[in-house]
Design a protein around this nucleic acid. Sequence first.
DNA 1: CGATTAATCTAATGATTGTTAGAATAATCG
DNA 2: CGATTATTCTAACAATCATTAGATTAATCG
Lengths: 223, 223
Amino acid sequence: MNKPGREIKNLLYEQVARIGKAVSSPKRLELIEILCQGEKTVEELAAAAEISVKLASAHLKELKAARLVEARREGKNVAYRLVDTQVADLWVMLRALAEERLLELQAAMRELVSRPEELYAVGGKQLLAQAKRGEVLVLDVRPADEYEAAHLPYARSIPLAELKSRLDEIPTGKPVVAYCRGPFCLMAREAVDLLTRRGRRAVRMEVGVAEWRSQGLPLATGE
Amino acid sequence: MNKPGREIKNLLYEQVARIGKAVSSPKRLELIEILCQGEKTVEELAAAAEISVKLASAHLKELKAARLVEARREGKNVAYRLVDTQVADLWVMLRALAEERLLELQAAMRELVSRPEELYAVGGKQLLAQAKRGEVLVLDVRPADEYEAAHLPYARSIPLAELKSRLDEIPTGKPVVAYCRGPFCLMAREAVDLLTRRGRRAVRMEVGVAEWRSQGLPLATGE
DNA sequence: CGATTAATCTAATGATTGTTAGAATAATCG
DNA sequence: CGATTATTCTAACAATCATTAGATTAATCG
């Protein structure tokens, strides 16, 4: 009853579905987003995603089976990373697709941006030019190791945890554009709240390094 | 114990995971690929994917819930289509990702291309130029309605089913480049087999209209 | 070497899924 | 109108999945 070629076709679609399966779990997506910022150990991943180490390990195993991440032992720890930036592009694409289509997600996003004027609206290239001319201070509030792995050009690193104690490094005159891990991350929002309370002109930018890179814009690495 | 913002974060990732879920089933992926060729009824989709109408309907319901497809009643039939070309881009991306990483898929693909010289190797822009100058005959072997919905520029439509009886339309001198629904489709392969047996110089091209469009290349519509 | 830390494997659970069959809608045709 | 065709809904099954706890492996440190 089956046409010839059906078995091989089934096999082909099944293989692609393995990738789909890997990105069908919220926790796995969160792990991918964290790994977009750079290499992380299982412990760090579990802490960032607020799940147990066991569960993180199980999810990472699946991501590894789908060849989206790879593991590397470093002493006592096992460090995971994305196999390449195409995986980050997939995450960006899935998020954009969901954001455009799913009303529930749009509603939740609106809660993350209480006042719309808090969001930095200009495009990547324009920001780059403004930052180069020193018209704005681009602030990376992620942990220092993520800044070192990759960050926006001209961005200054002050991790959120240190921001309060390093406030004197932020000039009061210049407008500040803060960014973090991406649209779903709350760190830049908190930073902007703190900065505006302390008399700075600060806005949040939604993009993270993954979104920035998938737009074809350049990134910097190191200190 | 939970940090503030955890609930909303869970909600956000869950919404994106709905898209992932939708593309985690081989049958749903096959339906998406078929819908990349144009609008289809449930019956047509079920026949093309070689599944029951009931099962097709159930899968389409899930795709609709994830807002990847939309339905439109047309008389007795319900016609489904992709909500927009971004969904086709997602399919192309997933397939490319799987093909690069999963060895099982690479092995299966090799069976589809028994002799490597059967594959047309030049890029899209170059093919376009060759076709424009009339150096090659670009042959679309998909059903006529899919050709009408969208096809490669300068392509000639001869559905696989009619190819045998319309062989006289294919010149013996000019090289033929046949394409169908994409890398997983067997129609172009069959066409090339038939044509070479009948003394034509024919090769298969892996891309379909979805791959072509996601590369930013132009398509034509209508007769 | 034994103790400690980090991560994985195994087994068990309750929940979800894919698939099928049968009943129910929705539009058309005579 | 009743009969037909196309599709969806409901209920049910076995199969698969996510998650947790307990045992196990791998590397380091004293």
